[in-house]
């Protein structure tokens, strides 16, 4: 495991408070500029721009239909925006492709569970390693040395992820049989298996009870701290959002209406109007 960035700080500080944001957060790693997305005349996103900085936790919030999930889909190439550019690690794209996004280090979890239902927990997470596996079809067919060694190497990484997410007991269980909260963890595990630099989480805590939400928050913050992974998450629970994010982007009807620290966003008039309704 990567050494904790936190360890650089004095122990006393580490225990009571998270490291101050400015020591952890790096330069801009991902930026979307002037993104507009239409679905046959319906405008889902119009002219949205924002930056994501390395190692930060960025939340995207907004009422239903604000274009949050579409935004994530544009970032990892499931949707192609009609206008705008995506800049990731100093390369600029008009449209991402899903496998290129994956290869460059963007992983993703899904709002409605998108696990591979017919496969075990282990296989689901192993599939996240697929991109890094190279042995050819013949070597796999005969399962000769290299194929098996490769499989074992990646199995070890996957076992670390299983340990981290505390799902050892369900390793061989078909994911369809797991409780909802555990399935969400497997979804996170599959994304982590890519060893991403940017992790896009689409409502990781939707439909969970308080304990499950706390567990999930802990996993997200641990991933962020231990691996330094940049997190972009969509979440509706404002308590969670205000608590764990460094910065918040607010969308409403496909437009960006707020962008800043939790404190700034909380005081933003447009945001309050969008959530509470404004009299026009």
């Amino acid at each position: 495991m990567a050494s904790l960035p936190v360890q650089a700080l004095p122990a006393s500080k580490r225990l009571d408070e998270p490291p101050p944001a400015h020591t952890r957060i790096g330069p801009v790693i991902l930026s979307v500029a002037n993104i507009s997305l239409d679905f046959g005349g319906v405008r889902a996103i119009s002219d949205v721009s924002f930056d994501v900085r390395e190692h930060e936790v960025l939340a995207i919030i907004g009422p239903n239909g604000a274009g949050k999930s579409s935004m994530l889909n544009v970032i990892n190439g499931v949707y192609h925006a009609q206008q705008g550019r995506i800049r990731f690690k100093d390369r600029e794209f008009a449209a991402m492709q899903p496998h290129r996004a994956a290869a460059m280090g963007i992983a993703r979890t899904f709002q409605n569970l998108a696990l591979f239902k017919g496969m075990s927990v282990l296989d689901n997470i192993m599939t996240g390693r697929n991109m890094k596996m190279r042995t050819g079809i013949l070597a796999q067919a005969l399962r000769v040395g290299p194929a098996e060694r490769e499989e074992m190497r990646h199995r070890e990484v996957v076992e670390h992820i299983i340990d981290f997410l505390e799902i050892q007991a369900y390793r061989k269980t078909p994911v369809g049989r797991l409780a909802y909260g555990l399935q969400k963890r497997v979804d996170l595990g599959r994304a982590l298996a890519l060893e991403p630099e940017v992790l896009l989480l689409d409502e990781p805590m939707a439909g969970m009870n308080v304990e499950e939400k706390q567990d999930m928050c802990r996993f997200i913050l641990d991933v962020n701290e231990q691996y330094g992974t940049t997190i972009v998450l969509i979440e509706h629970d404002m308590g969670v959002v205000m608590d764990i994010s460094d910065r918040i982007v607010v969308l409403d009807y496909g437009r960006k209406i707020g962008d800043g620290t939790p404190g700034e966003v909380r005081g933003n008039r447009a945001v309050i109007d969008a959530y509470l309704g404004a009299t026009h």
């Binding site: 499931v78 899903p98 496998h99 591979f116 599939t127 697929n130």
Partner: peptide, 13 residues
């Protein structure tokens, strides 16, 4: 087979 979009997103062509 199980979820083609998710497969693509984790890098399976």
């Amino acid at each position: 087979r199980d979820m083609d979009v998710a497969a693509e997103v984790i890098g399976i062509r």
